[in-house]
C-alpha cells in the first residue's frame, strides 16, 4: 500500500550540518529581533508624534510590514533592491526582510503598551527635573517592555519560523537552506524535513524558555 522505505540513518548522519544551520537560523532570528525591537520603538514613538513628517513614513512602514506577505518583503530586499543596483547577499536580505516585518508588528504592540502607561508617570518624572527623553528612557520604556513582553516573545517565534523563507532568495546556510540542499542531493525529503521540523520546534521552545527566564529575572514587580 505504500512502499516508501525510511532511511533515517542517512538523514541522521547529516545532523551536525543541520545543527550548524540551526545556529545560523537562531542568529538571524535574534539579530532580526534586536534590529526589529529598536526600529519598533522608534516607529511607535513616531506614530504618536505630533509632526506629520514623522507620522507618515512610520505609518507607511507599519502598513506595508503588516499587510503584505513576509515573502514579498524578503524578495523586495533581495531582488527589488537589486533592480536599483543595491545588491544584498541572501543573508543580509533575509535579515533585512524579517527585521522590517518584526519592526512593523512590534511597533503596534509597543504603541498599545505605551497607551497603557498613564501620562502622569512622565509628569512625575518631569517634575523631578528629568527631560522628556530622559523620562521616556527611564520611566516609560521599562514599563512598556514589561507590558509588551508576551506579544514580543510571540513575534520572536514567528521570526525564527520566517527565516525558512530565506531559501527563496538563495539562502543555503540556515536550517531550511541546509535541509533543502541535503534533500536535493538525496531526495530523502520526509526524513530531512522531519528532522528540520523537530529542530525548529526545539529552537522555538528554547527561545521561549530563555524569554521566560529573562522575564522572571527582569520583572520582579
Amino acid at each position: 500500500m505504500f512502499d516508501y522505505t525510511f532511511q533515517w540513518r542517512q538523514a541522521l548522519r547529516a545532523l551536525p550540518q543541520m545543527l550548524d544551520g540551526a545556529l545560523v537560523t537562531l542568529q538571524i532570528a535574534v539579530l532580526s529581533m534586536l534590529i526589529g525591537v529598536t526600529c519598533a520603538v522608534l516607529l511607535a514613538v513616531a506614530r504618536n508624534a505630533s509632526s506629520a513628517w514623522l507620522r507618515a513614513p512610520a505609518t507607511a512602514w507599519v502598513e506595508v510590514a503588516r499587510n503584505t506577505p513576509a515573502l514579498f518583503q524578503i524578495y523586495m530586499a533581495h531582488f527589488g533592491l537589486g533592480s536599483f543596483g543595491i545588491h544584498l547577499s541572501p543573508y543580509v536580505a533575509l535579515l533585512a526582510g524579517i527585521s522590517f516585518n518584526n519592526a512593523g508588528y512590534l511597533s503596534e504592540t509597543f504603541r498599545g503598551a505605551l497607551r497603557a502607561i498613564p501620562a502622569t508617570q512622565v509628569r512625575a518624572g518631569r517634575s523631578l527635573g528629568m527631560g522628556q527623553a530622559q523620562a521616556f528612557r527611564l520611566i516609560v520604556l521599562p514599563q512598556m517592555f514589561r507590558i509588551a513582553f508576551l506579544p514580543t516573545t510571540n513575534q520572536m517565534v514567528w521570526a525564527i519560523l520566517m527565516t525558512s523563507l530565506g531559501v527563496t532568495v538563495g539562502m543555503n546556510t540556515d536550517l531550511a537552506g541546509v535541509t533543502q540542499d541535503l534533500n536535493a542531493r538525496s531526495f530523502r525529503t520526509f526524513e530531512f524535513f522531519a528532522i528540520a521540523a523537530v529542530l525548529y520546534y526545539i529552537i522555538a521552545k528554547v527561545v521561549m524558555l530563555g524569554a521566560r527566564l529573562l522575564a522572571w529575572r527582569l520583572f520582579r514587580y
Binding site: P118, T120, A124, S127, G129, M130, I139, Q143, R146, F219
Partner: peptide, 21 residues
C-alpha cells in the same frame, strides 16, 4: 525648567510611584 524643577518638589493626588522600581 529641568534645573528649576529640582528646587520645586511636587506630590500629586495619584501617587505616581514608578512601578518598575
Amino acid at each position: 525648567l529641568n534645573k528649576l524643577r529640582r528646587k520645586i518638589g511636587i506630590v500629586f493626588q495619584q501617587f505616581n510611584a514608578f512601578p518598575h522600581l
